[in-house]
Design a protein around this nucleic acid. Structure first.
Lengths: 145, 145
DNA sequence: TTAAATTAAGATAAAAAACTCTTTTAATAT
DNA sequence: ATATTAAAAGAGTTTTTTATCTTAATTTAA
């Protein structure tokens, strides 16, 4: 098991990909995204549909249509994608799955994991969707394999 | 989604529970463990069967039988339970699910998450199964709800 | 105004994870 | 020896996640 669900992994890779390809204008099709991030096309379509509804990517139908990200989206934090897909469990949940785990009534791992969760949260809140465009264009970062 | 699978959450809670109940001797039955950590009994039985094979808990059949942990197990790191159940993906995998993500060919989140993974790993390597016995007995820590 | 391109939506399928139930095996105590 | 207790093992079900396929709805351009 990874940190995120498979759906969320695809979502993140797809949004980074779209961001990189369209931050200067243009559109990119589901097909090209699926190839670009090595994901199942139809499954990805579903995921992007959902992100599109939430405004975490933009889309246009018809010829010359496709997905893209606008200025504002570029500056939204990566945390919003994770939260849209996987919920906030990774930021606030209990490591041992207890519903009522808290400062007051903690599980054995509560304090240690609180720190780690907070780090994950702040990391994802402070990095934005468009933050990797350059590295991706330069080929320093990878989104497939 | 939590950090660990549900199976792993049950495993951790169960082992902490058994440790607490038996570190001074005695046995505890699956039924009592299931009640004590609020988990499905038969499902937990499977999980403990597996942990028992791997020596991460001890078991005895028959009257006065049940599960327990011996001296050595008390001092084994919690990481071994996680690894036995969920594998090492949480310690070494890529946040975006890429197989070949590495220092050389990193995904956009590689460096940030490397740090976090390492923290999780070292946290779980340095805390041992028996480390919470006192807190559990005193009721400072909780394993259900 | 029609054909082509492209996402949206819906229905279904396959795989994995979570959970249940029944039978067998082993140990103990009487 | 036998009955009883408790885990081990096996088979099966349900739910969730992941993936596929088909059709509908929009948009554009000729």
């Amino acid at each position: 098991m990874g940190l995120f669900s498979k759906t969320c992994e695809y979502a993140l890779r797809a949004v980074f990909f779209i961001s990189q390809k369209t931050s200067e204008g243009g559109r990119v099709s589901i097909k090209d995204i699926a190839i670009g991030i090595d994901s199942p096309e139809h499954f990805l379509a579903k995921i992007l549909q959902d992100l599109s509804k939430r405004g975490l990517v933009q889309s246009a139908k018809g010829p010359n249509g496709g997905f893209f990200v606008d200025e504002i989206t570029l500056r939204r934090p990566v945390a919003e994608i994770v939260e849209a897909v996987d919920g906030n469990g990774i930021f606030v949940g209990c490591a041992l799955g207890l519903k009522e785990c808290s400062e007051k009534d903690p599980c054995p791992l509560h304090n240690q994991f609180k720190t780690i969760r907070d780090e994950i949260h702040s990391l994802l809140r402070t990095t934005n969707i468009g933050d990797f465009n350059e590295e991706l264009i330069l080929g320093i970062n990878s989104l497939k394999r």
